[in-house]
Design a binder for these strands. Structure first.
Lengths: 209, 209
DNA sequence: ATTATCTATAGATCTATAGATAATGC
DNA sequence: ATTATCTATAGATCTATAGATAATGC
């Protein structure tokens, strides 16, 4: 069975690769990647140094993949939890509020985000793509009155990262409340009335699937 | 004259130190500092490698000083230009709008900010301290209706950095207009009516001193 | 005499590869 | 037979220091 052979090989290969990505994610969460050697990462992944170059051309390559991997996991988790919420305003607010909740259940990803620079995060298909979709939907539905969607997204992305940064630096604060307030402010900024912004931002979040 | 002696020595010493800081700022603007060796920075400053350790304990120390130095210059430049503007809302909007204009006259600082992570920038007394003052003044004057000033500042800081990031990645766009729109959205978010937010955000900026 | 600077370098570390070894499929 | 992995290492690079040199003030 040639398929099996390929599978067996590829499975082991994929395991090695994933171990490296996992180790890179941990490293990025701890130190932002600065000062971590390829050798140290491979050691952490329990993988020979030589194997590293079998999968990645170098450290930047691995880090790019690791960031994309974490963002994808993050995005899927948010999507799962917001499934069934149709109002784009409520989705947007829910995304902000859930990000902080997830900071507690996925601390590794959030610390990695805090150590990253803004451009690296917004590029891919993680948070930014989802927010873009929600803003556009909300505009099309007449729910948001926004002069320029690009600027609205810029505010959104920057604010969310700054909120996570705040969370990283003040672990004691009531982050649920903070995220709720931010969601409310953002909805108001996007055109909802103060009362409606507050109402939508305080709706119960869907139960975890 | 012992004073002169100290002065002469200290002047030369300060020149060496400043050359290193300047070189560090350039390096941070170009590459974010990753992969730049102490030797390369000292070379760029036209300073012997040994002298470096006479002024700084290591690369992180130098980079910290360089970031603070740039933020201080930036903050002073904004302050100069906004001198005489008394309305905190107008000051806040002016700060956002001027930041982008300054991106064209001080590109080095702005590129450095784009390569930095959020936490490093908000810590010191640069943009963040000024925004904090304006928000607090505006709340005290009843001009802003904000639930939580900490969250408002979080949005502000993140949005501004994201705007600079946008500017760095899209050099062709009309950044003046983008900054005006963002200022308008932020003022509205802080409680001004849509009409007033638009009005304040479009007031003529003071002529350069 | 004092101080800052410079050059040269020791020692550490890091990257990337070469060659050997082990696992798998045929 | 093929492929991925491992170990070991060559070569490059980087940090930090030691010792020599030059500038300044007394």
């Amino acid at each position: 069975m040639p398929a099996l052979r390929r599978n067996r090989f590829e499975r082991r290969r994929a395991e090695t690769r994933q171990a490296l990505v996992r180790a890179a994610r941990q490293t990025l969460a701890e130190s932002g990647g600065a000062g971590a050697s390829v050798h140290a990462i491979a050691e952490r992944a329990d993988v020979g140094l030589g194997s590293f170059y079998n999968h990645f051309t170098g450290k930047p390559d691995l880090f790019d993949v690791a960031v994309a991997d974490a963002l994808e996991e993050y995005g899927q988790a948010v999507d799962e939890r917001l499934h069934g919420v149709d109002d784009p305003a409520e989705r947007l607010a829910g995304g902000v509020r859930l990000s902080v909740r997830m900071a507690e259940s996925y601390p590794e990803i959030m610390q990695m985000l805090c150590h990253s620079q803004l451009g690296r995060i917004c590029g891919g298909g993680g948070l930014a793509a989802r927010a873009k979709r929600d803003v556009e939907e909300g505009m099309a539905a007449g729910r948001f009155t926004v002069v320029d969607p690009v600027i609205a997204l810029t505010v959104l992305n920057g604010s969310l990262l700054a909120l996570l940064e705040l969370w990283c630096n003040q672990p004691g604060a009531d982050s649920d409340q903070a995220a709720g307030i931010m969601a409310e402010m953002i909805l108001h900024m996007l055109g909802l009335s103060p009362d409606e912004a507050r109402d939508v931002a305080r709706r119960a979040l869907p139960a975890t699937v």
